[in-house]
């Protein structure tokens, strides 16, 4: 995992995860049957994705077999097995967005960032993910970056937004 360019960690060995961060989640949910999805959602909130080590730890704690956890993780689109960039771009692929040119917006983002759907930029700043529908159809085409929705996108406006996010990141670094 660490040899991959898009890995956020600096070590070339297996990354070390601080499992104690999961303790409050485990205390609350591990005895409640049917809580696996909730536990995985909280774990992903903490680590940004679901590494094998974390899934194994959840298995140990809950008694659910790792194979089953892997099965659940790969079933739902929300879960990620790979780390993501600092800014997650969720590009809506709903019907209204499709009709209003989501494909064109995707091309524009790919051109600006130099990545394809599902990939992370080399500097680790952006990950582009297509998502089913964000439910803001009247503003289509729409994307969401870190929970903030941007609507009525055009080829040019989307590039402008990405530049602004990148600049904000850079000026943040200077500080």
């Amino acid at each position: 995992m660490c040899e991959k360019n898009n890995c956020a960690c600096n070590s070339s060995d297996s990354p070390v995860f601080d499992f104690s961060k999961l303790d409050p989640v485990m205390d609350k949910y591990k005895k409640t049957p049917g809580s696996l999805i909730t536990i995985l959602q909280k774990a992903q909130d903490i680590y940004g994705y679901l590494p094998k080590e974390v899934m194994n730890y959840i298995s140990q704690e809950t008694g659910v077999k790792p194979s089953k956890i892997y099965g659940v993780v790969t079933f739902y689109t929300q879960f990620r097995l790979e780390p993501i960039g600092k800014n997650l771009i969720m590009l809506c692929q709903g019907t209204a967005c499709h009709v209003n040119g989501a494909k064109m917006i995707e091309e524009s983002i790919c051109e600006e960032l130099g990545v394809q759907e599902g990939e992370t930029t080399e500097d680790g700043l952006f990950t582009l993910n297509n998502v089913a529908c964000l439910g803001c159809c009247s503003l289509s085409p729409v994307m969401m970056i870190n929970g903030e929705t941007y609507g009525k996108l055009t080829k040019d406006s989307v590039k402008k937004i990405l530049k602004e996010v990148r600049n904000a990141e850079k000026s943040g670094e200077v500080k």
Partner: peptide, 11 residues
């Protein structure tokens, strides 16, 4: 779990 892509009544 409003899944129809292109609908947002429930939301």
């Amino acid at each position: 779990d409003e899944g129809d892509p292109g609908a947002f009544m429930d939301r």
